[in-house]
Amino acid sequence: MNGLARDTLFVPRLYDEQLVPLIFAAYAADLAQRVAARPATSVLEIAAGTGAVTRELAARLPTGTTIVATDLQQPMLDFAMRVGTGRPIEWRQADALQLPFASRTFDVVACQFGVMFFPDKARAFAEARRVLRPGGALIFNVWDRIEENDFADAVTAALAAMFPADPPRFLPRVPHGYSDIAAIRRDLAAGGFNARPQFETVTARSAAASPRIPALAYCLGTPLRAEIEMRKPSGLEAAVDAVEALIAERLGDGPVEGRLKAHVVVAET
């Protein structure tokens, strides 16, 4: 398995049941609210995952607004379709670098925490720009630096202590590796978004009933699992225990709360 494949290897059930309520739900509601505030008859979501934003869009957008939800990984879409949305949605497997849609098809393109995974971000932005109608907008969010996100930072620190010679770096390298606003501006401009994009930093709180919940969510439900098993095939349980212990040390051993911080970007055509 190559590096790109490992970096997108999420476990749909664990992702949706544990990571979505832990770190994604608040930002999904925020993103959908921003989309709903714009006049739109057609919305495209890219990197929809298990449908956290899709469900919010379905609940907030007028029934006459069409929603197309796409993801590169068919298993994620399959899970999202099983969960459902309460209204008709078009689900489609698609690569953000080569969208299978005609130019000027959508009023809004939305993406929740997916841009960081695109191997060629300027090309992905150019594709979003291509399928947008004049006056349309690309609305997406990206995580801020890992040090500003308590659970992710603790996970990374615990695994670095467990594997000091070769620490797993998925979280700082990919999900939290695209927080530089200047770099995002450059990539948007390279993708054809000539108007100055809007940036807003949004903070939130993440809560879990115990430190073990985020430990399980990150170590078993994300590409960290593959990185741990590459270093020690039988090391998952020990990794979960180590992460749990550090979260408890930093945030308490009962119900825990962690800080979340992300940037929301609006780029108009």
Rank of each mutant, 00 (worst) to 15 (best):
R87V: 12
I139G: 01
M116P: 02
P119M: 06
V142Q: 03
P100W: 12
D107C: 15
V115K: 04
R82K: 15
Q98K: 07
G84S: 11
F101T: 05
V131K: 01
I89E: 02
D144M: 11
R87Y: 10
F125L: 11
R82V: 15
A122P: 04
G114N: 13
L97V: 00
A126W: 04
A69Q: 01
I67A: 01
C111T: 07
F118K: 03
D71C: 13
A122E: 06
M76Q: 10
D144Q: 13
A124K: 12
V68F: 06
M81K: 04
F125Y: 10
R145S: 11
L97C: 06
L132M: 07
M81N: 05
D95R: 09
R104M: 12
L99P: 02
R104S: 13
T85Q: 10
L61H: 05
A128F: 02
I139E: 01
Q112R: 12
F79V: 04
L77A: 12
R92C: 15
G84M: 14
A124T: 08
A122N: 06
D71N: 04
P100A: 15
V109F: 02
R129I: 00
A128Y: 02
W143T: 09
T70W: 01
A69E: 02
T105Q: 05
P134Q: 12
R92H: 13
L138Y: 06
V131W: 00
S103H: 05
